[in-house]
Amino acid sequence: MDSNLRREIILEHYENPVNRGLVDDDSYILKNTNNDSCIDNIDIMLKVDDGIIKDIRFDGEACAISTSATSVMINTLLGKSVDEAKKILQNYQNMIDEKDYDKELLGELNVYDEIGRQPNRKMCALLPSNAIKSILEMLEEK
């Protein structure tokens, strides 16, 4: 992908992320992503109905990569079934880890396909996917 276009997309999602702001609604499951390796601190909440991801919202203070990746991830996962979402998350993780992945499946998330080369930024890119993955796991345990 052209690096200017890549940057434009990321910057747009950083400056104007989708679904920023949490709601007070206990049909959502909330996860905080305060992790040790970076200082990003994002809350993500997700609502599933009938096996479909109905809504994802987030809030917090984080770097350009984490914030934008959260926004792009939300766009990508909204309306997907839990199984589709899991597949996307796995492929996204593979892409960041520089393993084989299905490019078609990831859509706009492909803008992060070079992040894996910067070890200090991998965690930033993985922040939303790790959080959403663990929310989906929490749902399964319910």
Partner: peptide, 19 residues
């Protein structure tokens, strides 16, 4: 965001801490 500033400065080989 402070971390972005630190990453930016690293590009110039200037080492500062963010957090």
């Amino acid at each position: 965001f402070a971390q972005d500033t630190a990453i930016f400065l690293n590009h110039f080989h200037i080492y500062v801490r963010a957090g």
